[in-house]
Amino acid sequence: MTPRFDYDLIASWIPEGARVLDLGCGDGELLSKLSATRGVKGYGVEIDPPRVLAAVGRGVNVLQVDLESGLSTFDDNAFEFVILSQTLQAMRRSDLILKEMLRVGREGIVTFPNFGYWRHRVAILRGRMPVSRTLPYQWYDTPNIHLCTVKDFEALCERVGAEILDERVLHEGRIVGTLPNLLGSLGVFRFRRRG
């Protein structure tokens, strides 16, 4: 299992007792952590049966719903935070899920592997698809069908009407200060509906 460096940063943004929706919650690690340390209430959404089972085992309120069909289970503004952690890149319509996040949550948090990370660029320059800690798959078996760079995601936020509140690029758990789109492997964005 890849270490989830984004979890600590996300946890630092979530206030005590917030209502949180964790999309693609996996085995429920983040939510169970947030509920233990921050007393948050909320739901995880996960489609993969073994992960759903694992999340139930952690006592997380997990809903086995397909994110690709939108968030129709949830009312407008139902949550203070909607988290999409390392799932955006695996979705068929990454733009639509962002819009749905803006609808059901006051703020959204998205983390994704930065395709612009220098090792990825080097791999491409050498003529091969990158394989790295954040992108540990071969091109033919990867679930990641919509990879983007930090700059690409900024542009998408602009397009779907999301105002970026906080933007960090991490590498190996540390925040990258210089040339983040080149030196960081994991983008972490916090945003809200514009206007």
Binding site: L63, Q64, V65, T73
Partner: peptide
């Protein structure tokens, strides 16, 4: 079943939902 889930979620009630293949 999802109708039931949606109604419960709209009140923030504790609910887990599984769709068994």
């Amino acid at each position: 079943s999802r109708e039931i889930v949606k109604a419960l979620v709209s009140h923030g009630k504790r609910v887990t939902y599984a769709d068994i293949d």
